[in-house]
Write a protein that binds this DNA or RNA. Sequence first.
DNA 1: AGAACATACCTCGAACCCGAGGTATAGCGA
DNA 2: TCGCTATACCTCGGGTTCGAGGTATGTTCT
Lengths: 178, 178
Amino acid sequence: MLKLAILGFLHDRPLHGYELRRHLAALTGHVRPISDGTLYPAIKRLETDGLLVRETEPGTTAAPRHTLHLTEAGRAALLGRLREPEQLDISDENRWFTVLAFLRHLDAEPAAQAAVLRRRLDFLSEPASFFYDGTRPIGAEEVGDPFRRGLLLIARATSEAELTWLRGTLAELERTAP
Amino acid sequence: MLKLAILGFLHDRPLHGYELRRHLAALTGHVRPISDGTLYPAIKRLETDGLLVRETEPGTTAAPRHTLHLTEAGRAALLGRLREPEQLDISDENRWFTVLAFLRHLDAEPAAQAAVLRRRLDFLSEPASFFYDGTRPIGAEEVGDPFRRGLLLIARATSEAELTWLRGTLAELERTAP
DNA sequence: AGAACATACCTCGAACCCGAGGTATAGCGA
DNA sequence: TCGCTATACCTCGGGTTCGAGGTATGTTCT
């Protein structure tokens, strides 16, 4: 997920680590702040995988900044991952939001964008609860515990908002690329 | 988060690993399935920390089942963690849902329950976006990218649903324990 | 001139998590 | 009786993440 976010930001324009850190903090920081000890090793991994290169520029600032550029392989990896996200990217809200944040990089392939949205739609359409009576999902109305009831109510409200948005956006995408 | 969930389930009644696995699968499985390689080491950690004990019962079933019992220290750890969740438990939706799923274990202390809900309310009340123009949060209306706009719309809908629920439940808790 | 802060990068150990694989037994249908 | 599936548990290696700490240099305030 971090990998996806880094590639996504670098696709727009080259950045150095510190800027990247600020972008990431804005995107996911209030929910899950990412630390230096996470970011810099991740950058190094992407570098050894050949997805980005760093160019040391002796700038005017404090330490020597390493500007990070996406390579062609990096661009391909990003687009590939956006085209075919793994199941966790679809089901886990944090990861899904990251996918959404960068899905416009697939603007050249509206059909691929629609396919991704449809996967999320299918996932949300499955009848799933957090609590079961045997195999039957339990609805919010049946739960005595007010906190669990709240959990189900919130989850349902989210689902519904997202489903309407998904249906609307899919219709629009299909108008563009029939 | 896994730790919290295990302790939470065992607080209701002793379970063996396999049952625990099924409970966990129901609670978080559709979003983020947890594997054996995650569960069993976690159980072992909790055991060495003295939060649970396993009692081997030579039952009628296939392999010898280890029924897991919460110790007094385990109960204390669970309640302590529910009383004072770390910030990630408040901000990350997955973790927060886990807290909610077990918050009724604090039923004897409605004031503590209210305090936890109020922390989440404070967190959601902060003006936070995913995208910024400098330091000013950008609203959904200003975003051109339809996917990012969707992201913001969904986040806002969730927030609003949760805020109404939080306010209502808090009012109710305060009626119980003024 | 000195303190304080922001910029910029990096390392390390500990913890954690996952997937793949392994070991059993029980029960059921072919 | 053979194989399949479900139950039940466990290990291992590889990878990821975190927090705490370290090292510089510039800018700003006092």
